[in-house]
Amino acid sequence: MSNSEASHFLQIKGLGKWFGQFCALWDINLEVNSGERVVVCGPSGSGKSTMIRCINLLETFEAGEILIDGEKLVNNPKKILAIRRKVGMVFQNFNLFPHITVLQNLMLGPIRNLNLSKSEAAETAMKYLEKVQIPEQAKKYPSQLSGGQQQRVAIARALCMNPEMMLFDEPTSALDPEMISGVLDIMVELAEGGMTMIVVTHEMGFAKQVADTMVFMDHGEIVEVAPPEQFFTNPQSDRSELFLSQILSH
């Protein structure tokens, strides 16, 4: 994160978020450059998901500001839609639309929100289904797919919107162990293609492999931001050291 101020794709300044009286996020400051891969980790309940959900306004926040591509997030429906179309999101539970086929899942967003024609949308959809290596599943319904395949469809669906940044909210946490590597491979490939990514995950192998920056959160605050080499070998704060010793002990 040593680049100049101008190339920050995402800036979070003094973000604060409360659920009722409970302060879920406090004083979050983060800059992400174009093409940067950020992995966010931390104990459960530390606000990781809440933070990335604020970035495309799935959660509102009470303090601070978020700038995407230099533009401040404000409570204006048109602007919010524009931001959401720039930022793709992949959920822990996939959240595919169960009533339509895989292909239609991929086409619906571009047709309705990017004004693509049906044939253009279908073409894009097939391109990304091939990228996530399941073009043969296009005509099936999501429930007929395994968890890993569903998550790959979800990634493809987000990519079909041609986003400038991708947010991953624990994308492998709901998967059976044998499904995880297939999804991570896709994400590695995406990272190598230069996509700006913020990934909330407990997959430390993946983090070591692709992260430019590690962010460690605890109790709704960012405790440590460090390059992965340093974070994994020589964490600066006691809390990240404890966390790492707990998750890497097995």
């Binding site: 495309n56 839609l81 524009a82 999101m89 959920f91 959240n95 967003g109 929100n113 919107m161």
Partner: peptide, 10 residues
């Protein structure tokens, strides 16, 4: 949430 993230209006 998924449809919001894909930029669908209400």
């Amino acid at each position: 949430e998924a449809s919001n993230a894909l930029g669908f209006n209400r």
